[in-house]
Amino acid sequence: MLPTPSTDHVSFDRVYEPAEDSFLFLDTLSCDRETTFLRQRFAQCSNGDHASPCILEIGTGSGVLLAFITAHSKKLFGRPDVLTLGADINSFACKATEETVRTACRESTPYLNPGHGIYLDTLNANLGDALHSGVVDVLVFNPPYVPTEDLPNPSDHESYNQFDHGTTTFEQDSHLLALSYAGGMEGMEVTNKLLDRLPELLNPQRGVAYILLCVQNKPQNIKQRVQNWGTSWRADTVGSSGKKGGWEKLQIIRIWRSADP
């Protein structure tokens, strides 16, 4: 088991606290099946391409997942020279992520973990809006997937998102936390926007996306939708939890393009 990055410094009043979904992500990305897949896909010098993979996490929250990926890049990708980027709509989450990633890299012990990846930045952005087309090799997204009546009001966001070194109000904290879980209709309103731009964001050859879904998101329909993008597109469930039932059964799907017909 690879160590889970510490998020002790984060205020969970306004930033999503790592929970079952976050841990399912850590377990899935570090399981043998996925590390084998990622190592093969990003092996150096296969067909002469040795370029460092670029990893983007959307909605980093506390930064636990991005820190895990950065600190354990050698274990996950078979190479330490990966570039990691984060994006979060919540500026407090961006700050938290920076510190979580830095701490995890600093504490990664050289003999257990020879070389961590290169953390670039966390952008205060909506989904992948700031990213140049085709630059993302691996996209990870633990979205706001809970079905809700409404999404947080976008016109409140600018004032609630301010860095203010004083205190925050209850309304501000509620708004920021809702952004991390409220998914609107079927819990899919935010994820649908990302899916719309996914084929363009991902690198046409190497691109892979991991997206977490709950049962109310109708994962089967989403996988079908991806396959409808074209014959090269694939979507598979690669991790799941909550098998005993309950309303929040979770799974992670991997979306990628295969060279095989």
């Binding site: 961006c94 920076e98 930045d121 909506n126 600018e158 998102n161």
Partner: peptide, 9 residues
């Protein structure tokens, strides 16, 4: 600001 770029429109 403080090293973080704000791309929110």
């Amino acid at each position: 600001k403080e090293g973080i770029a704000n791309f929110l429109l």
